[in-house]
Amino acid sequence: YRPIIDAFRVFAKTDNSVYTKPYLTNGEFICPSSGKPCSCGESKVHNCESSAGADTCGLHKPVSYNEIDGSLYKEKELIFPPELVLRNDLPLKLHGFGGIRWYRPLKLKHLLDLKSLYPDAKLVVGNTEIGIEMNFKNARYPIFISVTHIPELNVLSIKDDGLEIGSSVRLSRLQEVLIKVIAEREIHETSSCKAISDQLKWFAGKQVKNVASVGGNICTASPISDLNPLWMAARADFHIVDSKRNIRTVHAKDFFLGYRKVDLAQDEILLSIFLPWSRHFEFVKEFKQSHRREDD
């Protein structure tokens, strides 16, 4: 949303004095955005109109971006459009080129029904892995199911015995909660949380972490995964649900069967991950070795 506004800014006429404040240092005007002397605040823009041979001038006033409370643009950031916040989500069924179909269910039951109907369908959250497969490996998938709006898959709750993480939870959101947990709980309980949080610092870029999901990274079963070895070391459990709503639990160390192979039947999906608190005298430490730590 914000990059779109920034892109249109180059086409807009602006009054620089609206966005600056009179910070004077030795008689020079200091621009708040750059912190350097500039001339954008030395003169005020006047709106002059000729009437009956006489000029009447008035100060140019900044336009309010929020008509509800009258806040000025120079005082606040642009708000996210309330219309988009209040908009009700709807299930989607889209058709693309070559017979591609894209579904976005809103309920777990509908997701499981679709997975039962299309067992080879690809589940999508951030498209960070599938997009690479399609663009660089020439992979073709006829059916996509977006699982971004399933409430059960977006659960992220702190419990007495550990952390419950929905499979669609974004990596950036997980990192925020881990930082909070580390600050609030006993040190011996958060050894695994700290290891995962520290590893996420070097996990791709922020843009990728904002859309990539925990479950997507696990089910990809990449042999160079940053997080999967930590799930195993931290004694994590994976909760798996099938099309009949039966839930089974698999230890992380038993979930990975081979190269990009996991213990999931065609009608099953990864529901959530349970990360138990570390025990006394139990230490988990991350270590990443690659040509570039930020991107392997």
Rank of each mutant, 00 (worst) to 15 (best):
F80T: 09
P82Q: 12
P82Y: 04
E83G: 12
V85N: 07
L86H: 08
L86A: 11
N88P: 03
D89W: 12
D89I: 15
L90F: 08
L90S: 12
L90H: 10
K93V: 14
K93Q: 15
K93A: 13
L94Q: 09
L94P: 04
L94Y: 11
G99H: 10
R101Y: 10
R101W: 10
W102H: 09
W102S: 08
W102C: 06
Y103H: 06
R104Q: 10
R104V: 07
P105L: 01
L108A: 05
K109Q: 08
K115E: 02
S116P: 02
P119S: 02
D120M: 06
A121E: 07
L123R: 00
G126T: 06
N127W: 09
N127E: 15
T128C: 05
E129I: 10
E129N: 13
E133S: 05
M134P: 01
F136N: 13
Y141Q: 05
Y141V: 08
I143C: 02
S146N: 13
V147P: 00
V147T: 07
T148K: 15
H149Q: 07
H149A: 06
I150R: 02
I150A: 04
P151G: 00
P151H: 02
E152T: 05
L153P: 02
L156F: 06
S157G: 11
I158M: 12
K159N: 15
D160N: 14
D160S: 13
D160P: 08
D161Y: 10
G162P: 05
G162L: 03
G162W: 01
L163E: 00
I165M: 06
I165Y: 03
G166Q: 02
V169D: 02
R170F: 03
L171M: 09
R173D: 13
L174F: 00
L174V: 02
E176I: 08
E176V: 05
L178K: 01
L178I: 00
L178Q: 00
I179R: 09
I179V: 14
K180C: 10
V181A: 09
I182L: 03
A183V: 11
E184V: 10
E186S: 14
E186Y: 07
H188A: 06
E189R: 12
E189D: 14
S192T: 06
S192E: 04
C193M: 14
C193Y: 13
I196G: 05
S197Y: 08
S197A: 14
Q199P: 03
Q199R: 08
Q199K: 08
K201C: 12
